[in-house]
Design a protein around this nucleic acid. Sequence first.
DNA 1: ATAATTTTACCTACCGTTCAGTAAGGAGAA
DNA 2: TTCTCCTTACTGAACGGTAGGTAAAATTAT
Lengths: 202, 202
Amino acid sequence: MAKVSKKKLIIEHSGKSFSELGYELTSLESVAKKCGITKSAIYYHFKDKAALYKAVVCPEFTALAQKIEEYTQTGNAVQRLNAYIHTFGEFLISNPDFSAIFAREIANGSKTIPDECIEQLSRTIKQLAKILHAGISERVFEEESPFLIQMMIVTPLISCHTTKSLRERVANFTQSETLPLEPEFENIIELLSKKIIKGLQC
Amino acid sequence: MAKVSKKKLIIEHSGKSFSELGYELTSLESVAKKCGITKSAIYYHFKDKAALYKAVVCPEFTALAQKIEEYTQTGNAVQRLNAYIHTFGEFLISNPDFSAIFAREIANGSKTIPDECIEQLSRTIKQLAKILHAGISERVFEEESPFLIQMMIVTPLISCHTTKSLRERVANFTQSETLPLEPEFENIIELLSKKIIKGLQC
DNA sequence: ATAATTTTACCTACCGTTCAGTAAGGAGAA
DNA sequence: TTCTCCTTACTGAACGGTAGGTAAAATTAT
Protein backbone atom coordinates (compact mmCIF):
# COMPACT_ATOMS: atom_id res chain seq x y z
CA MET A 1 0.00 0.00 0.00
CA ALA A 2 1.16 3.45 -0.90
CA LYS A 3 0.68 4.43 2.74
CA VAL A 4 -2.02 7.05 2.49
CA SER A 5 -3.13 6.51 6.03
CA LYS A 6 -6.80 5.63 6.29
CA LYS A 7 -7.00 7.81 9.34
CA LYS A 8 -6.33 10.92 7.29
CA LEU A 9 -8.79 9.76 4.67
CA ILE A 10 -11.46 9.37 7.29
CA ILE A 11 -10.77 12.85 8.66
CA GLU A 12 -10.95 14.37 5.20
CA HIS A 13 -14.16 12.76 4.11
CA SER A 14 -15.92 13.15 7.43
CA GLY A 15 -14.85 16.79 7.54
CA LYS A 16 -16.55 17.37 4.23
CA SER A 17 -19.66 15.58 5.42
CA PHE A 18 -19.75 17.42 8.77
CA SER A 19 -19.57 20.70 6.90
CA GLU A 20 -22.19 19.80 4.33
CA LEU A 21 -24.72 17.97 6.45
CA GLY A 22 -23.80 18.82 10.01
CA TYR A 23 -22.86 16.50 12.83
CA GLU A 24 -26.16 14.72 13.29
CA LEU A 25 -26.90 14.03 9.65
CA THR A 26 -23.42 12.75 8.99
CA SER A 27 -23.61 8.97 9.13
CA LEU A 28 -20.44 7.05 9.74
CA GLU A 29 -21.54 4.45 7.25
CA SER A 30 -21.65 6.99 4.46
CA VAL A 31 -18.27 8.33 5.49
CA ALA A 32 -16.86 4.81 5.46
CA LYS A 33 -18.32 4.23 2.03
CA LYS A 34 -16.61 7.34 0.67
CA CYS A 35 -13.34 6.13 2.17
CA GLY A 36 -13.78 2.69 0.67
CA ILE A 37 -13.76 0.98 4.05
CA THR A 38 -16.33 -0.21 6.55
CA LYS A 39 -17.86 1.60 9.45
CA SER A 40 -16.03 -0.57 11.95
CA ALA A 41 -12.69 0.53 10.56
CA ILE A 42 -13.58 4.03 11.68
CA TYR A 43 -14.13 2.67 15.16
CA TYR A 44 -10.69 1.19 15.11
CA HIS A 45 -9.16 4.65 14.63
CA PHE A 46 -11.58 6.73 16.67
CA LYS A 47 -13.28 6.02 19.95
CA ASP A 48 -16.64 7.27 18.71
CA LYS A 49 -18.28 9.81 16.45
CA ALA A 50 -17.53 12.68 18.81
CA ALA A 51 -13.83 11.84 18.87
CA LEU A 52 -13.75 11.87 15.09
CA TYR A 53 -15.41 15.25 15.07
CA LYS A 54 -12.78 16.56 17.46
CA ALA A 55 -10.00 15.26 15.26
CA VAL A 56 -11.51 17.12 12.33
CA VAL A 57 -12.12 20.39 14.05
CA CYS A 58 -9.24 21.00 16.45
CA PRO A 59 -6.38 21.35 13.96
CA GLU A 60 -8.36 23.96 12.06
CA PHE A 61 -8.82 26.16 15.11
CA THR A 62 -5.13 25.83 15.90
CA ALA A 63 -4.08 26.79 12.38
CA LEU A 64 -6.34 29.83 12.53
CA ALA A 65 -4.95 31.06 15.83
CA GLN A 66 -1.43 30.52 14.53
CA LYS A 67 -2.00 32.65 11.44
CA ILE A 68 -3.72 35.40 13.36
CA GLU A 69 -0.80 35.77 15.74
CA GLU A 70 1.69 35.62 12.89
CA TYR A 71 0.19 38.33 10.72
CA THR A 72 -1.00 40.93 13.23
CA GLN A 73 2.18 41.87 15.03
CA THR A 74 3.51 44.85 13.09
CA GLY A 75 2.27 48.29 12.13
CA ASN A 76 -0.10 50.76 13.78
CA ALA A 77 -3.42 49.81 15.26
CA VAL A 78 -5.41 50.46 12.10
CA GLN A 79 -3.02 48.38 10.02
CA ARG A 80 -3.05 45.58 12.56
CA LEU A 81 -6.84 45.52 12.82
CA ASN A 82 -7.00 45.45 9.04
CA ALA A 83 -4.56 42.54 9.04
CA TYR A 84 -6.62 40.78 11.72
CA ILE A 85 -9.81 41.05 9.69
CA HIS A 86 -8.08 40.01 6.49
CA THR A 87 -6.31 37.05 8.06
CA PHE A 88 -9.46 35.85 9.77
CA GLY A 89 -11.50 36.53 6.67
CA GLU A 90 -9.20 34.83 4.22
CA PHE A 91 -8.97 31.81 6.46
CA LEU A 92 -12.76 31.52 6.57
CA ILE A 93 -13.37 32.31 2.93
CA SER A 94 -10.72 29.90 1.73
CA ASN A 95 -11.85 27.16 4.15
CA PRO A 96 -15.56 26.96 3.45
CA ASP A 97 -15.75 23.60 5.20
CA PHE A 98 -14.41 25.05 8.41
CA SER A 99 -16.65 28.05 7.93
CA ALA A 100 -19.72 25.89 7.68
CA ILE A 101 -18.79 23.87 10.74
CA PHE A 102 -18.11 27.05 12.68
CA ALA A 103 -21.46 28.47 11.60
CA ARG A 104 -23.26 25.38 12.82
CA GLU A 105 -21.42 25.49 16.11
CA ILE A 106 -22.44 29.09 16.65
CA ALA A 107 -26.04 28.31 15.80
CA ASN A 108 -25.90 25.32 18.10
CA GLY A 109 -24.65 26.96 21.27
CA SER A 110 -21.19 25.56 20.59
CA LYS A 111 -21.97 22.59 22.77
CA THR A 112 -19.74 20.22 20.85
CA ILE A 113 -16.63 22.39 20.61
CA PRO A 114 -13.93 20.91 22.84
CA ASP A 115 -12.04 23.09 25.31
CA GLU A 116 -8.92 22.72 23.24
CA CYS A 117 -10.56 24.65 20.43
CA ILE A 118 -11.96 27.26 22.79
CA GLU A 119 -8.43 27.91 23.95
CA GLN A 120 -7.30 28.52 20.38
CA LEU A 121 -10.22 30.83 19.85
CA SER A 122 -9.30 32.75 22.96
CA ARG A 123 -5.81 33.26 21.53
CA THR A 124 -7.29 35.13 18.59
CA ILE A 125 -9.54 37.32 20.68
CA LYS A 126 -6.69 38.14 23.02
CA GLN A 127 -4.81 39.36 19.98
CA LEU A 128 -7.79 41.42 18.91
CA ALA A 129 -8.05 42.92 22.39
CA LYS A 130 -4.39 43.91 22.24
CA ILE A 131 -4.89 45.62 18.89
CA LEU A 132 -7.95 47.50 20.11
CA HIS A 133 -6.05 48.56 23.20
CA ALA A 134 -3.18 49.82 21.06
CA GLY A 135 -5.71 51.78 19.03
CA ILE A 136 -7.02 53.46 22.16
CA SER A 137 -3.47 54.41 23.17
CA GLU A 138 -2.91 55.85 19.71
CA ARG A 139 -6.19 57.75 20.11
CA VAL A 140 -7.60 56.38 16.85
CA PHE A 141 -10.14 53.91 18.26
CA GLU A 142 -13.02 54.34 20.62
CA GLU A 143 -13.17 51.85 23.44
CA GLU A 144 -15.34 48.86 22.62
CA SER A 145 -15.85 45.28 23.71
CA PRO A 146 -13.53 42.95 21.78
CA PHE A 147 -16.30 40.35 21.80
CA LEU A 148 -18.63 42.68 19.96
CA ILE A 149 -16.00 43.55 17.37
CA GLN A 150 -15.15 39.87 17.00
CA MET A 151 -18.80 39.09 16.34
CA MET A 152 -19.08 41.92 13.84
CA ILE A 153 -16.10 40.48 11.99
CA VAL A 154 -16.71 36.77 12.24
CA THR A 155 -20.43 36.23 11.85
CA PRO A 156 -20.85 37.99 8.48
CA LEU A 157 -17.78 36.24 7.09
CA ILE A 158 -18.88 32.86 8.32
CA SER A 159 -22.33 33.31 6.86
CA CYS A 160 -20.91 34.44 3.56
CA HIS A 161 -20.92 30.96 2.06
CA THR A 162 -23.87 29.51 3.91
CA THR A 163 -26.23 32.33 2.94
CA LYS A 164 -25.43 32.19 -0.75
CA SER A 165 -28.50 30.22 -1.76
CA LEU A 166 -30.65 32.19 0.67
CA ARG A 167 -29.51 35.44 -0.95
CA GLU A 168 -30.27 34.06 -4.37
CA ARG A 169 -33.75 33.02 -3.36
CA VAL A 170 -34.41 36.40 -1.79
CA ALA A 171 -33.05 38.08 -4.91
CA ASN A 172 -35.61 36.21 -7.00
CA PHE A 173 -38.32 38.11 -5.17
CA THR A 174 -36.61 41.47 -5.47
CA GLN A 175 -34.91 41.49 -8.83
CA SER A 176 -37.93 42.88 -10.64
CA GLU A 177 -37.88 45.89 -8.33
CA THR A 178 -36.29 49.26 -8.71
CA LEU A 179 -32.94 48.39 -7.21
CA PRO A 180 -30.68 45.70 -8.61
CA LEU A 181 -29.64 43.66 -5.59
CA GLU A 182 -26.62 41.58 -6.26
CA PRO A 183 -26.41 38.63 -3.91
CA GLU A 184 -22.67 38.18 -4.40
CA PHE A 185 -19.85 40.23 -3.01
CA GLU A 186 -16.47 39.74 -4.55
CA ASN A 187 -14.34 41.44 -1.98
CA ILE A 188 -16.41 41.17 1.15
CA ILE A 189 -13.36 41.09 3.39
CA GLU A 190 -12.09 44.46 2.24
CA LEU A 191 -15.58 45.99 2.35
CA LEU A 192 -16.18 44.71 5.85
CA SER A 193 -12.77 45.76 7.07
CA LYS A 194 -13.23 49.31 5.84
CA LYS A 195 -16.64 49.64 7.45
CA ILE A 196 -15.64 48.17 10.78
CA ILE A 197 -12.52 50.28 11.05
CA LYS A 198 -14.44 53.40 10.11
CA GLY A 199 -17.15 52.56 12.60
CA LEU A 200 -14.55 52.18 15.32
CA GLN A 201 -12.53 55.33 14.69
CA CYS A 202 -12.78 58.40 16.87
CA MET B 1 -63.31 22.61 23.11
CA ALA B 2 -63.25 25.58 25.40
CA LYS B 3 -59.72 24.56 26.27
CA VAL B 4 -56.60 25.88 24.52
CA SER B 5 -56.49 24.19 21.17
CA LYS B 6 -54.01 21.36 20.98
CA LYS B 7 -52.82 22.63 17.64
CA LYS B 8 -51.50 25.79 19.25
CA LEU B 9 -49.97 23.76 22.03
CA ILE B 10 -48.14 21.61 19.49
CA ILE B 11 -46.83 24.68 17.68
CA GLU B 12 -45.62 26.21 20.92
CA HIS B 13 -43.83 23.17 22.25
CA SER B 14 -42.36 22.14 18.93
CA GLY B 15 -41.18 25.70 18.34
CA LYS B 16 -39.26 25.57 21.58
CA SER B 17 -37.79 22.22 20.66
CA PHE B 18 -36.87 23.29 17.14
CA SER B 19 -35.05 26.27 18.55
CA GLU B 20 -33.27 24.34 21.27
CA LEU B 21 -32.37 21.17 19.44
CA GLY B 22 -32.85 21.96 15.78
CA TYR B 23 -35.10 20.29 13.25
CA GLU B 24 -33.41 16.90 13.09
CA LEU B 25 -32.99 16.37 16.81
CA THR B 26 -36.55 17.35 17.56
CA SER B 27 -38.52 14.15 17.87
CA LEU B 28 -42.24 14.28 17.45
CA GLU B 29 -42.64 11.84 20.27
CA SER B 30 -40.97 14.18 22.75
CA VAL B 31 -43.08 17.06 21.49
CA ALA B 32 -46.21 14.97 21.91
CA LYS B 33 -45.16 14.05 25.42
CA LYS B 34 -44.76 17.70 26.37
CA CYS B 35 -48.22 18.39 24.98
CA GLY B 36 -49.72 15.47 26.87
CA ILE B 37 -50.90 13.77 23.70
CA THR B 38 -49.62 11.05 21.42
CA LYS B 39 -47.42 11.35 18.40
CA SER B 40 -50.31 10.39 16.17
CA ALA B 41 -52.30 13.37 17.36
CA ILE B 42 -49.65 15.57 15.79
CA TYR B 43 -50.26 13.77 12.51
CA TYR B 44 -53.91 14.53 12.81
CA HIS B 45 -53.17 18.27 12.81
CA PHE B 46 -50.16 18.36 10.48
CA LYS B 47 -49.34 16.48 7.31
CA ASP B 48 -45.80 15.71 8.43
CA LYS B 49 -42.88 17.06 10.39
CA ALA B 50 -41.98 19.57 7.69
CA ALA B 51 -45.50 20.99 7.69
CA LEU B 52 -45.32 21.47 11.44
CA TYR B 53 -42.02 23.29 11.07
CA LYS B 54 -43.58 25.57 8.49
CA ALA B 55 -46.48 26.34 10.78
CA VAL B 56 -44.01 27.33 13.47
CA VAL B 57 -41.73 29.45 11.37
CA CYS B 58 -43.86 31.26 8.79
CA PRO B 59 -45.88 33.49 11.13
CA GLU B 60 -42.67 34.73 12.70
CA PHE B 61 -41.19 35.86 9.41
CA THR B 62 -44.44 37.57 8.53
CA ALA B 63 -44.61 39.40 11.84
CA LEU B 64 -41.03 40.56 11.39
CA ALA B 65 -41.63 41.94 7.89
CA GLN B 66 -44.77 43.65 9.12
CA LYS B 67 -42.98 45.46 11.92
CA ILE B 68 -40.08 46.48 9.71
CA GLU B 69 -42.39 48.13 7.21
CA GLU B 70 -44.39 49.77 9.95
CA TYR B 71 -41.52 51.42 11.80
CA THR B 72 -39.18 52.54 9.02
CA GLN B 73 -41.35 54.87 6.98
CA THR B 74 -40.65 58.28 8.45
CA GLY B 75 -37.62 60.51 8.98
CA ASN B 76 -34.38 60.99 7.14
CA ALA B 77 -32.23 58.11 5.92
CA VAL B 78 -30.08 57.93 9.05
CA GLN B 79 -33.14 57.85 11.28
CA ARG B 80 -34.82 55.24 9.13
CA LEU B 81 -31.74 53.02 9.04
CA ASN B 82 -31.49 53.35 12.78
CA ALA B 83 -35.14 52.38 13.07
CA TYR B 84 -34.56 49.43 10.74
CA ILE B 85 -31.70 48.10 12.84
CA HIS B 86 -33.58 48.64 16.08
CA THR B 87 -36.78 47.03 14.85
CA PHE B 88 -34.94 44.03 13.44
CA GLY B 89 -32.74 43.83 16.51
CA GLU B 90 -35.49 44.07 19.06
CA PHE B 91 -37.50 41.46 17.24
CA LEU B 92 -34.55 39.06 17.30
CA ILE B 93 -33.43 39.83 20.83
CA SER B 94 -36.92 39.49 22.23
CA ASN B 95 -37.64 36.32 20.23
CA PRO B 96 -34.67 34.12 21.11
CA ASP B 97 -36.48 31.04 19.80
CA PHE B 98 -36.91 32.59 16.40
CA SER B 99 -33.36 33.84 16.56
CA ALA B 100 -32.03 30.34 17.18
CA ILE B 101 -34.09 28.86 14.37
CA PHE B 102 -32.93 31.59 12.03
CA ALA B 103 -29.32 30.99 13.01
CA ARG B 104 -29.63 27.30 12.25
CA GLU B 105 -31.23 28.03 8.92
CA ILE B 106 -28.39 30.34 7.97
CA ALA B 107 -25.80 27.78 9.04
CA ASN B 108 -27.70 25.13 7.15
CA GLY B 109 -27.94 26.76 3.75
CA SER B 110 -31.57 27.65 4.51
CA LYS B 111 -32.72 24.50 2.77
CA THR B 112 -35.80 24.08 4.92
CA ILE B 113 -37.12 27.63 4.75
CA PRO B 114 -40.30 27.67 2.66
CA ASP B 115 -40.71 30.19 -0.14
CA GLU B 116 -43.41 31.92 1.82
CA CYS B 117 -40.83 32.94 4.41
CA ILE B 118 -38.31 33.97 1.79
CA GLU B 119 -40.89 36.34 0.41
CA GLN B 120 -41.34 37.93 3.82
CA LEU B 121 -37.59 38.23 4.16
CA SER B 122 -37.40 39.92 0.78
CA ARG B 123 -39.91 42.48 2.00
CA THR B 124 -37.51 43.54 4.71
CA ILE B 125 -34.51 43.79 2.42
CA LYS B 126 -36.51 45.78 -0.11
CA GLN B 127 -37.24 48.22 2.65
CA LEU B 128 -33.54 48.34 3.57
CA ALA B 129 -32.64 48.98 -0.06
CA LYS B 130 -35.08 51.88 -0.17
CA ILE B 131 -33.55 53.40 2.92
CA LEU B 132 -30.01 53.05 1.58
CA HIS B 133 -31.12 54.57 -1.69
CA ALA B 134 -32.67 57.51 0.16
CA GLY B 135 -29.37 57.93 1.99
CA ILE B 136 -27.50 58.17 -1.27
CA SER B 137 -29.91 60.80 -2.55
CA GLU B 138 -29.41 62.73 0.67
CA ARG B 139 -25.66 62.37 0.15
CA VAL B 140 -25.15 60.91 3.61
CA PHE B 141 -24.50 57.26 2.65
CA GLU B 142 -21.99 55.69 0.38
CA GLU B 143 -23.42 53.19 -2.08
CA GLU B 144 -23.30 49.67 -0.79
CA SER B 145 -24.95 46.31 -1.37
CA PRO B 146 -28.09 45.98 0.75
CA PHE B 147 -27.26 42.30 1.18
CA LEU B 148 -23.95 43.13 2.78
CA ILE B 149 -25.51 45.65 5.14
CA GLN B 150 -28.27 43.19 5.95
CA MET B 151 -25.69 40.57 6.87
CA MET B 152 -23.75 43.04 8.98
CA ILE B 153 -26.93 43.80 10.87
CA VAL B 154 -28.55 40.41 11.14
CA THR B 155 -25.77 37.89 11.75
CA PRO B 156 -24.30 39.52 14.87
CA LEU B 157 -27.77 40.01 16.34
CA ILE B 158 -28.83 36.47 15.59
CA SER B 159 -25.67 35.08 17.12
CA CYS B 160 -26.09 37.20 20.19
CA HIS B 161 -27.98 34.56 22.14
CA THR B 162 -26.43 31.49 20.61
CA THR B 163 -22.86 32.58 21.31
CA LYS B 164 -23.47 33.39 24.93
CA SER B 165 -22.01 30.21 26.33
CA LEU B 166 -19.22 30.29 23.76
CA ARG B 167 -18.27 33.77 24.88
CA GLU B 168 -18.30 32.68 28.49
CA ARG B 169 -16.05 29.75 27.79
CA VAL B 170 -13.66 31.93 25.81
CA ALA B 171 -13.71 34.47 28.63
CA ASN B 172 -12.58 31.78 31.04
CA PHE B 173 -9.34 31.57 29.12
CA THR B 174 -8.85 35.33 28.89
CA GLN B 175 -10.15 36.76 32.13
CA SER B 176 -6.81 36.40 33.89
CA GLU B 177 -5.22 38.57 31.21
CA THR B 178 -4.62 42.28 31.04
CA LEU B 179 -7.96 43.24 29.53
CA PRO B 180 -11.26 42.52 31.20
CA LEU B 181 -13.38 41.01 28.42
CA GLU B 182 -17.03 41.09 29.23
CA PRO B 183 -18.95 38.49 27.27
CA GLU B 184 -22.26 40.31 27.69
CA PHE B 185 -23.43 43.42 25.95
CA GLU B 186 -26.45 45.14 27.36
CA ASN B 187 -27.30 47.40 24.52
CA ILE B 188 -25.85 45.57 21.54
CA ILE B 189 -28.50 46.94 19.20
CA GLU B 190 -27.59 50.55 19.85
CA LEU B 191 -23.86 49.80 19.69
CA LEU B 192 -24.22 47.97 16.40
CA SER B 193 -26.50 50.60 14.92
CA LYS B 194 -24.06 53.38 15.69
CA LYS B 195 -21.13 51.52 14.19
CA ILE B 196 -22.92 50.46 11.04
CA ILE B 197 -24.30 53.91 10.37
CA LYS B 198 -20.92 55.48 10.99
CA GLY B 199 -19.27 52.94 8.73
CA LEU B 200 -21.74 53.74 5.98
CA GLN B 201 -21.60 57.53 6.11
CA CYS B 202 -19.73 59.61 3.53
C1' DA C 1 4.57 -15.57 14.81
C1' DT C 2 2.80 -11.57 16.31
C1' DA C 3 0.84 -7.23 16.08
C1' DA C 4 -1.87 -3.96 13.43
C1' DT C 5 -5.67 -3.32 10.77
C1' DT C 6 -10.09 -4.29 8.67
C1' DT C 7 -14.37 -7.02 7.75
C1' DT C 8 -18.53 -9.65 8.85
C1' DA C 9 -22.36 -10.07 11.33
C1' DC C 10 -25.11 -8.38 14.50
C1' DC C 11 -27.60 -5.65 18.42
C1' DT C 12 -30.28 -2.10 20.32
C1' DA C 13 -32.53 2.07 19.98
C1' DC C 14 -35.06 5.40 17.96
C1' DC C 15 -37.46 8.01 14.34
C1' DG C 16 -41.04 9.39 11.03
C1' DT C 17 -45.00 7.59 9.28
C1' DT C 18 -49.23 4.87 8.59
C1' DC C 19 -53.42 2.86 9.84
C1' DA C 20 -57.24 0.69 12.05
C1' DG C 21 -60.02 1.78 15.55
C1' DT C 22 -62.78 4.64 18.98
C1' DA C 23 -65.00 8.00 22.17
C1' DA C 24 -67.60 12.27 22.05
C1' DG C 25 -70.67 15.27 20.06
C1' DG C 26 -73.64 17.60 16.89
C1' DA C 27 -77.35 17.41 12.88
C1' DG C 28 -81.30 15.67 11.03
C1' DA C 29 -85.15 12.56 10.54
C1' DA C 30 -88.67 9.52 12.95
C1' DT D 1 -87.13 11.93 22.40
C1' DT D 2 -84.50 8.70 20.24
C1' DC D 3 -82.24 6.61 16.55
C1' DT D 4 -79.05 7.07 12.80
C1' DC D 5 -75.23 9.26 10.50
C1' DC D 6 -71.25 11.86 10.13
C1' DT D 7 -67.34 14.52 11.81
C1' DT D 8 -63.73 15.83 14.99
C1' DA D 9 -60.04 14.55 17.78
C1' DC D 10 -57.38 11.35 19.25
C1' DT D 11 -55.03 6.46 20.70
C1' DG D 12 -52.13 2.35 20.26
C1' DA D 13 -49.70 -0.70 17.74
C1' DA D 14 -46.93 -1.66 14.16
C1' DC D 15 -43.68 -0.95 10.04
C1' DG D 16 -39.67 0.12 7.47
C1' DG D 17 -35.64 2.26 7.84
C1' DT D 18 -31.39 3.96 9.72
C1' DA D 19 -28.23 5.17 13.25
C1' DG D 20 -24.27 4.33 16.53
C1' DG D 21 -21.88 0.87 18.43
C1' DT D 22 -19.52 -3.94 19.45
C1' DA D 23 -17.45 -8.71 19.47
C1' DA D 24 -15.03 -11.79 17.07
C1' DA D 25 -13.15 -13.57 13.04
C1' DA D 26 -10.23 -12.69 9.10
C1' DT D 27 -6.70 -10.43 6.69
C1' DT D 28 -2.42 -7.98 6.12
C1' DA D 29 2.05 -6.22 7.43
C1' DT D 30 6.37 -6.68 10.09
